[in-house]
Amino acid sequence: MTLGGIDLVALMAMLMVASTPILLAATGELIAEKAGVLNLGVEGMMIMGAIGGFAGAVMTGSPALGFLAGAGAGAAMALVFGFLTQVLLSNQVATGLALTLFGMGLSALIGKGFEGVRPPATGKLDLGGLADLPVLGPVLFRHDWVVYLSLALIVAVWLFLHLSRAGLILRAVGENHDAAHALGYRVVMVRLAALAFGGALAGLGGAYLSLVRVPQWTEGMTAGAGWIALAIVVFASWRIERVLLGAYLFGGVTVLQLRLQAAGYAIPVQLLSMAPYVITILVLVIISARHRRGAQAAPAALGRIFHASR
């Protein structure tokens, strides 16, 4: 399947790999925001996940343990944020930005010994005959396991939010923490758990960058991916299925822009580099205009400080 000299099958496959780090991070941030916490420190958690995962994988020789360490590093960062915002009641926007600054610095310090090292390879998942299917094979069935994990998580989060009691509590806490507190739910604990989950996924996304996409450790290697993940959550108007759409759309436009250049199309490159951002804005406008509830789609208690004795 080609269009204008561009192989769409290969493009789809590229898109899936390119989008995985931001998809993971955005899924995690969605859960945190559904619980009513706005954590702008995704970039900091991702980069800590990147070095945590890299160091873990290099030291143990196992990529799987590396990903675990990356998730742990991200969760630990999220809990620092949680302690400050939930226990010490600090402002979430400022704390999130500070978390990014802290994470960028700390990851660089930890990473001093890991520059130029090559990590153990993360294998592709062997899906036997599926990989040989025409079209679907190359697009869907020739990736590493983290790609499938990121997709499975979308389903799991959807089920969790819509069908489980715990998901209901999480959403209640995010919509009205005072009411949830009055009903006897432990608002702070729910939020800490949501934050830790979000941090773990951001860390996983970072580890995917350092272990699969690049794969090497360099300072500042997330290069803004965490900010994109944040934007995708808003773009998705806090609905998990749209997070998938947003992440793939964003990754897709970036990949397509480069692909068109490679094919020799005379496109204004500088202006096209903006395309993913402009298109994200356009799609957001269309979605918001159609529902006119775009703004209200945000959890009502998002970013507000909860204090029980009030």
């Binding site: 400050l84 010490l88 402002n91 704390t95 500070a98 802290f102 610095g105 310090l109």
Partner: peptide, 16 residues
Amino acid sequence: AAIQVFQGLLLFFLLG
């Protein structure tokens, strides 16, 4: 990087 960590700590303490 150490300076960045230091700035991060300062912000954490101020905010907390």
